[in-house]
Amino acid sequence: MKNRKHSLTKHAKEIAIRNLFGFFAFLSVLLLGLILVFLFREGLPLFKQISVVDFLFGTAWYPTYDPPEYGIWPLIVGSLAITFFACLIAVPLGLLSAVYIAEIAPAGIKEILKSIIELLAGLPSVVLGFFGMVIVGPWLQETFDLPTGLNIINAAVMLAIMAIPTISSISEDALYAVPREFKEASYALGATKYETIIRVIIPAALSGVSTAVILGMARAIGETMVVLMVAGGAAAIPEGIFDAVRPMTASIAAEMGEAPFRSGHYHALFATGIVLFMITLAFNLIADYISNRFRETGSGTL
């Protein structure tokens, strides 16, 4: 009897530990919810002053004027423009470097390059922002004879440097995960290495590669310091790649310090945060969906 009781309490203890651990693990989900709650708490009051449509699609961002205008369309366009051009640079570089590491590079170079990409991922964004400001900016300005070197293209280049490690390392994992049997089958049929990579390995890794690209984009759109320092800060809809823009993240970071506590401006910045949060959340959910959906079945019919 005694023994049984002992084992019962022991069992109860195990369950208690399990539940406690489960709670802490669930904390990540709670925190995500909490982030949303507090963004809404500080952001929603804005919509007593202005409609959601005017906020999202208004083309004038003059938060400090009287009366103020809180249209973040130029900020959204700024974010998208920079992200687009950053991906134009980062996707090919990231993917090709992943192919190099996973399939082509000799063992020694592979390890070195992986470390280099990891260090690149570790570069603080403020450092890249600084580099873009003092080196790339003046160089662009001189070379292309521009009014300012702080513009879309500068920010895109610096952001690409930040997105490459994400794209490269996730793609690399996906390429590694392609079963050896597929490669052998391809070689045994008389395909060259290039043909095997392009027609068998990359298609088989496509879900992982798409996940990598989406996460890279999410990284770029949410990045703050680089765009704050090198995008130029003009809250207007850009007309070319040498125009200055003010992406959402930059606007929040630059103005929060000056916005009076719980003023319309303050609320508008939190509301911008909501938009940003939703966009990146959507990107992450899509990435999650893709990587799960294809994990079991392979990439199916290609």
């Binding site: 925190l31 982030i35 949410g222 999650d288």
Partner: peptide, 18 residues
């Protein structure tokens, strides 16, 4: 939980600031 962790990893740093 996994989705939560993945999404938390994707939240922009400035949103963490907010």
């Amino acid at each position: 939980i996994r989705i939560g962790v993945n999404c938390l990893a994707g939240v922009p740093s400035v949103v963490f600031g907010l």
